[in-house]
Design a protein around this nucleic acid. Structure first.
Lengths: 158, 158
DNA sequence: CAAGGATATTTGCAAATGCATTTAAATCTG
DNA sequence: CAGATTTAAATGCATTTGCAAATATCCTTG
């Protein structure tokens, strides 16, 4: 079609600039968000993996462990151990799937819900801080783009 | 002003929905992005911390270690050890700051640049995949929002 | 200019993480 | 339906991580 197009190799990071490179910005923002929660999490005896599992379980009822791993963005082996701890603290409960005895479904307990509800206001606060001064419609557009991105990357995921 | 407003407590995560909650989406997308690079990184003997340090150093010349920690979103102690490794592999070089002998400036070496340039196409590919089908203006708006968010959260940061 | 306190980096140590492997159960195939 | 293959979850093990404390240097202030 257009034989005039100059060879356009992958631009360098330096050319884009760190602060125009979306993954960098996202990593940096999430790094702060996650770090800002760590203190509250520590107070509740939660690690990132445990917190994420609880967060997902507060919304999704009885997923399989491998599903929970995807939703909570935690390695399956890491999650397995996080669930050990959460179960020992009675924040979750594991139940063998009725139809497949290899599989395990995970349920949040009342205590687990309470723990997450203690943490949630801090998450909401960090969230609000992040979006301070950003108009609603821009926020909605932003989330819309994120959803498209998620659809793009989760090829073979759930 | 409006005394009719019902008490509006923090909405629950369940009410927002996981896939409308920006931090969740961002964590999940970045989890995939970072995981997708892990294989290439492993082939180059890089950890996340080492890769991030290299990425920043490919753009920023001779930062202090504590600055590099902020830019690369890595705990300072973790970074310190990552730099040990990178220095041992001759991918970076540490130099005591001329004006302050407590401080250390970090420089990428030619070998370090080469290593990062080996990785970069994979990062660019993941990036492209993420944004596949998303129009340029939407991408620009998205990055614009990210920049506002970064400004919001980095209160006392660099 | 001698404390006393701040700042930059490193290090000790315990915990979290991820890969590879194992165990157990389900599913496929001839 | 026996054996091979796939799938779900747990575990062994080495590495990475993060907090807290240590070390070294710098900056005050009396």
């Amino acid at each position: 079609m257009n034989d005039q197009t100059p060879p356009n190799p992958v631009p360098r990071l330096g050319e884009i600039g760190l602060t125009n490179y979306a993954p960098y910005l996202m990593n940096r923002i999430m790094g702060r968000y996650n770090a800002s929660l760590r203190e509250e999490m520590a107070a509740l005896g939660l690690t990132t993996a445990k917190m994420r599992a609880l967060a997902v379980l507060s919304v999704i009822e009885g997923p399989l462990i491998r599903e929970l791993a995807v939703f909570s963005v935690v390695e399956q082996s890491t999650l397995s151990r996080a669930l050990d701890q959460l179960a020992a603290e009675a924040l979750i409960r594991r139940e063998t799937d009725p139809g497949d005895s290899r599989a395990t479904r995970v349920f949040i307990t009342e205590a687990g819900r309470t723990a997450f509800e203690t943490l949630w206001p801090h998450m909401a606060e960090s969230y609000a801080r992040m979006f301070r001064g950003i108009p609603d419609d821009e926020q909605r557009a932003f989330v819309g783009t994120l959803q498209k991105m998620l659809a793009n990357i989760r090829k073979h995921e759930i």
